[in-house]
C-alpha cells in the first residue's frame, strides 16, 4: 500500500475540490439525470412520471427518429471522409517550411475562429437562390439555379459542405503537428534510395501518421454527431422536410419546442451509446493495425 502524507492528502483534495464541485454538479449529475429522465415522462419545469421503457419504444417506432438517425449517419460518413482528406492534403501543402507556407496556414485557419452562427448565415447567403454567389456562378455557366437549402435533394450536402469548410483547417493543424514528428532522416535516406515524392508519401508519411489519423478520426466522429446543433439551427432548422434534422437538433427541438424532455433524453442516451460503440470499433481497428 502506498503511504500518503497527511499534508498531501489535504492539499490534493483541496486543490481539486473547486473544479470537482463544478464538474459534479454540472456534468456528472446531469449525465446520470439524462439516463434517469429517459425512463420518465418529463417536462421542462421538472415534472416527472415513471413510464419505464416507453420512450425507447416510441423512439424505435418513430419515423422521425429513424430518418434523423439516417441523416446523421450520412452526414457523419461524408464529414469523416471528405474533411479528413482536405485536412491531410492541406497539411501536406503547408508543411514546407517556406515563409509563404506560414501565411497560407493563417489564411486557411480563418474559418475555424469565425463562430458557427456567422458561418451559417454567411453560407446561407452564398447558397441563396437569387443573390447567392454560387447560384450567380451557376447561371453564368448556363446552369439552372438551385435552392440549395430549400430542396431536400441538396440541403444535406450544402450543410455538410459548410461544416467541412469551417472545420477542416483545425484538423490540418493536427496533421501538421504529426508530420513534424516524422524524422527528416527517413525522407533523406529514401531520397538517396531513389524513392520519388509519391513513393515517400505512401511508404513513410501515411504509415507514420497512423496514430495522428486515428486521433483525428475519433474527434471527427464525435464532432460530426454532436457539434452540429448551431449550423442546423441557423441554416435550415432541420428542414426541408427533415432532410437536415440531425439527431442533436431533433432532440433539442423535441425538448425545447415540444417540451418532450423524457423522449429527447432517450434520443441523447442513444447518441451517447452510438458514439461509444463507434469510438470503440475505431480504437479496436486502430490497435489491430498497430501490430
Amino acid at each position: 500500500m502506498t503511504h500518503y502524507k497527511r499534508r498531501d492528502c489535504i492539499d490534493g483534495f483541496a486543490f481539486i475540490l473547486p473544479a470537482f464541485i463544478i464538474i459534479f454538479t454540472f456534468v456528472v449529475y446531469p449525465s446520470l439525470r439524462l439516463f434517469f429522465l429517459s425512463f420518465h415522462d418529463a417536462n421542462l419545469m421538472g415534472g416527472l412520471k415513471y413510464i419505464g421503457l416507453k420512450n425507447y419504444q416510441s423512439l424505435v417506432a418513430s419515423q422521425d427518429f429513424i430518418r434523423s438517425f439516417l441523416v446523421t449517419l450520412r452526414f457523419m460518413a461524408m464529414v469523416i471522409v471528405v474533411q479528413t482528406l482536405f485536412a491531410f492534403i492541406g497539411a501536406l501543402i503547408v508543411s514546407e517550411s517556406r515563409r509563404s507556407a506560414s501565411l497560407v496556414r493563417t489564411i486557411y485557419f480563418i474559418p475555424v475562429i469565425i463562430s458557427f452562427v456567422v458561418v451559417g448565415y454567411l453560407w446561407q447567403g452564398m447558397y441563396n437562390h437569387d443573390y447567392g454567389l454560387i447560384n450567380s456562378l451557376l447561371s453564368l455557366l448556363g446552369f439552372k439555379r438551385i435552392g440549395f437549402l430549400s430542396d431536400p435533394a441538396y440541403a444535406l450536402y450544402a450543410l455538410t459542405a459548410t461544416c467541412i469548410w469551417k472545420s477542416w483547417p483545425y484538423f490540418m493543424m493536427i496533421f501538421l503537428a504529426g508530420l513534424k514528428e516524422i524524422p527528416g532522416e527517413l525522407y533523406e535516406s529514401a531520397m538517396i534510395d531513389g524513392a520519388g515524392e509519391l513513393r515517400r508519401l505512401f511508404a513513410i508519411t501515411i504509415p507514420l501518421l497512423r496514430r495522428t489519423t486515428l486521433f483525428i478520426l475519433l474527434i471527427t466522429t464525435m464532432d460530426s454527431v454532436v457539434k452540429v446543433f448551431t449550423p442546423v439551427f441557423v441554416m435550415t432548422s432541420g428542414g426541408p422536410r427533415g432532410s437536415t434534422d440531425l439527431l442533436v437538433h431533433y432532440a433539442w427541438r423535441m425538448a425545447f419546442r415540444f417540451g418532450e424532455v423524457g423522449y429527447s433524453s432517450s434520443i441523447m442516451v442513444f447518441v451517447f451509446i452510438f458514439l461509444m460503440v463507434v469510438s470503440f470499433i475505431q480504437l479496436k481497428i486502430g490497435e489491430r493495425n498497430e501490430q
Binding site: F26, V261, S265, V271
Partner: peptide, 8 residues
C-alpha cells in the same frame, strides 16, 4: 447532450 437535463 447535457443541455436537455441541464435545463430543468
Amino acid at each position: 447532450i447535457l443541455i436537455i437535463p441541464l435545463y430543468p
